Amino acid sequence: MAEGQKTVLWWGRFDPDYSRNRILRQAFTALGWRLIDFNPVLSAVANWQAILGGLAIPDLVWLPAFRQRDVRAAAKWARARKVPLIFDPLISAYDKQVYERQKFGPGSANAAKLLAWEKSLFAAADKVIADTAGHADFFAQTFDLPSSKIAVIPVSAEESLFTAAPPPENDTLEALFFGSFIGLQAPDVIVEAAKLCGAPVHWTLLGAGPEKSACEAMAAGQNAISFEEYLPYAQLPARIHKADILLGIFGTTDKAARVIPNKVYQSLACGRPVISRQSAAYPEQSDGLIQIPPGNPQALADAMAQLYTNRSELEKRGIAARQYYDQYFSTQKVKDSLSVLLDSLHR
């Protein structure tokens, strides 16, 4: 280890190959930090495993995406050693179970218990990461966090894979959706829009998930709509490059209004214009990102028809898409935001 090099301890049973984690780990390395991984056998007693195993004291403890269950043990261990702890939840368990999956009613005892549990976890961290300004506001309001405790770092895309490419030379314009066919994405809105659209556009929906069968039934007999199976992650950029226009999400939930999905980051990075639902998560307007009202098939059909009518402008829109990505969501932006956050810990 280089003299004076700082160390960050990535704590928890996380996936280092998940794109959010991989991009942040690369940013830490680029900033000169040394990464140490601690993957405990049991999350609840991980602090004791760390003690008994003689885990070296780092300069920072980092809790990565989705690892709520690791927070308490990590916070006990870090607090006893006066090491700052940063939590990057990416999602809220309370939000997911109560509002997205509707497993518990908002006013139920189970919802209140889950809220109190997650509120205590967010309070235990020195800093909490949000991926969008919308999520930052949600965390602050839901978990009573001061805004000074929250930092926004975009998800971004893996730029070694998702590279800008010239538009394809398709005879028929292709609009591509890829995803997990969940309600937040509203793939049914895409199918209905394809049926309403009078322009000669081919609509492709790629992936698998709970709403795919219903979408296939809705699309029966529609020659302009086709479905493709899930692709390995490394093959996704090439598939994006074959399409003219990419489709984001169109759900009507509060969460859908707060997120920027991976598919949007990746598509913009590939230099493809994107149509997605309106969201305050986006920092400003761009010719490369066409925002429409959520849950509105007719608005999507009309936007697609307009792009078809002005097909000669798609290349310029693709260039604008990549420029928008570079300005607000690039891995350099991640690195810069992380650097500001790390500097703030020592003020």
Score class of each variant (00 low, 15 high):
A93R: 10
V71M: 11
M1Y: 09
A224M: 05
D95Y: 08
G271V: 06
K96N: 14
S19L: 00
A2L: 14
L205Q: 09
A256R: 05
S148P: 06
F143P: 00
I23C: 08
G221T: 11
G107P: 00
L300Q: 04
V61F: 01
R13H: 06
A124H: 05
D188N: 12
L24S: 12
H135I: 06
R69H: 09
W77M: 01
L115E: 02
K335Y: 08
Q323M: 13
G288L: 02
T204Y: 08
F122L: 15
C215A: 12
D326Q: 15
A269D: 13
A73W: 01
A214E: 14
P40E: 12
P16A: 04
I86C: 03
Q285G: 10
D126L: 01
V83G: 06
P168F: 13
R322V: 04
N21K: 01
L205F: 05
S286M: 02
P200V: 05
A140N: 07
E159T: 05
V152L: 00
G12K: 05
A224D: 10
P168D: 15
Q235D: 15
L341D: 13
D88L: 04
F122P: 06
I290T: 11
L289H: 09
V340K: 09
A238F: 04
G12V: 01
P154R: 12
